[in-house]
Write a protein that binds this DNA or RNA. Structure first.
Lengths: 295, 295
DNA sequence: TGTTATTACGAAATTCGTAATAATT
DNA sequence: AATTATTACGAATTTCGTAATAACA
């Protein structure tokens, strides 16, 4: 299973064409055909149906494997490259939208930092593959439970002392029947329509798992952007409910009601490649995780 | 980053010798030397110091990457092989020691099943690489929270309706000062000595994370076996405390005191390769996850 | 008929073993 | 001196492009 073969397979499956993949990768049609044949022979299973070219069930499965496999190879190469090169002076921080608390922003140095907001699922990969030096990720978890992140590489997670855990709240339009409640249980809202905002908000799968109801929390409008204010505005306009950290849940026309069950908190963690960080990365990391216990 | 090069690198780093690795892999010294040279050139970093041969810091890092990378490649190959071959008649179930509740055992068919008890950390890998058709894993988690498992491959986890969550208890010797309590908080026991039994019991790291105290829960005796009764006996003999599901925590001379904080339960999940299972695996999977809601 | 995948084949590159060399204990 | 890593070199294999062929739409 040569990574090259895997890469051409993924490209062919995506573009649904041998020749288009050949163009995209700088090969000839012939080479691509040989790659696929070699891979199918090696694995002993047909991977693609031809005309139209589409993955077989086995091929679909290989796509899942290949994605994370190629990602991890990139991550390993990027990680090792850090040992060869001089420490970067310019620092890039990748952050999920909800991970940007005021306390975190205050701890960033004034210059030499690029802040890049990414969909939450892409933050670990960005740190692993060298697209960012540090990552800020968030998620819903039981109190004092670590986030369960996709492990694309041996990354190290650290908690942010100032803003590690915050209460969660359900965002409702002001005229919603439950808007006057002082606390809400997730189970009571399982039948409601929820905003599906995987990039900005919390993934609905997480809510289903927490409530133990695989089929509940049906998605209403889907929002693929990363702007939290828009998300709150969508909830206020009645397009669906949203679960957000209480501090982020305020907005015109929206009411935030604290979540009281199950016991979940909004958690933020700082992600960095393992090993001893060098240069500005070390300083920022220390500033964010270190001694900022208030006066 | 050819997997072959990676494999020889890992072997060389383990055996700390080019020639020993060559023997182990069926290569010549020369070939191994060329593999390492190619890898170092590709990555642009020296990976091994020679005489004595030992990994550099970058090499240490590559070992971490390579381990999971090679594991995932095996997993992908094993997964795809299932599509080519006929469904297996003999079924192998890999289980972590604490995942074997009576309720689970009762649901297994009478014949055609091999049950293999493995250290908890090896169960997902066994299922992923085809060493087992199904896996039973356990762990401590917040109520109705899924287990966070190392993702060696796209595996599917399912809950066991009969025995999904069970209360946890601390196992103490009968003459321990806290043995008469009716409930214990984990934080009160952070300074005690704990049994370190990663294969059979719950990993101490998990407790540290749950209590939010990275340096607490110092290990006492380390037990690398998979026998739960031995673990309880060790706790009874005063070699250290252990956290176990209440049902497994009873034993001669041992006292089990329920854990009341933090809110953690012992959770068991069934692991299987994704896709549509075939043959006996499908039947057993249905028996374990399906309609066994008792009267 | 035009596009697209497969096959045949040859040049170039890669891989691995033999054997000689160099370095370390 | 004995063991062990590196280097030189050549045979065998593999890889990829050109070009011809075949199979769709």
């Amino acid at each position: 299973m040569d990574p090259h073969l895997l890469r051409t397979y993924v490209t062919v499956a995506e573009l649904r064409s041998f020749s288009a993949a050949a163009r995209a990768l700088g090969y000839t049609q012939s080479a691509v055909s040989q790659h696929i044949a070699a891979l199918e022979q090696d694995l002993g299973v047909p991977l693609l149906g031809r005309r139209p070219v589409a993955p077989t069930p086995a091929g679909e499965r290989l796509l899942e494997h290949a994605g994370s496999l190629l990602l991890r190879i990139d991550a390993a190469r990027a990680d090792l490259a850090r040992y060869g090169a001089a420490p970067r002076e310019e620092l890039t921080v990748a952050a999920a939208p909800l991970a940007l608390h005021p306390a975190v922003l205050a701890a960033l140095p004034a210059t030499g930092v690029t802040l890049r907001v990414l969909p939450r699922a892409e933050v670990p990969a960005a740190v692993a593959t060298g697209g960012a030096d540090l990552g800020l990720v968030d998620g819903a978890a039981a109190p004092s439970d670590p986030l369960s992140l996709p492990d694309v590489a041996p990354l190290t997670a650290a908690v942010l002392p100032g803003a590690a855990e915050q209460p969660l709240a359900v965002v409702l339009p002001g005229d919603h029947p439950l808007a006057r409640r002082t606390g809400l249980r997730l189970a009571d809202l399982a039948d409601a329509r929820w905003l599906d905002a995987p990039a900005a908000g919390l993934p609905l799968d997480r809510l289903r798992a927490a409530a133990g109801t695989p089929r509940a929390f049906r998605p209403a409008l889907r929002y693929e952007g990363t702007d939290v204010r828009t998300l709150v505005a969508l909830a206020a306009a009645g397009h669906g409910l949203a679960l957000l950290p209480a501090a982020a849940a305020r907005g015109a026309g929206a009411v935030a009601v604290p979540l009281v069950a199950p016991r979940l908190v909004h958690r933020t963690e700082l992600l960095h490649p393992g090993g001893a960080p060098a240069g500005p990365a070390a300083r920022v990391l220390a500033a964010l995780t270190g001694a900022d216990r208030g006066p």
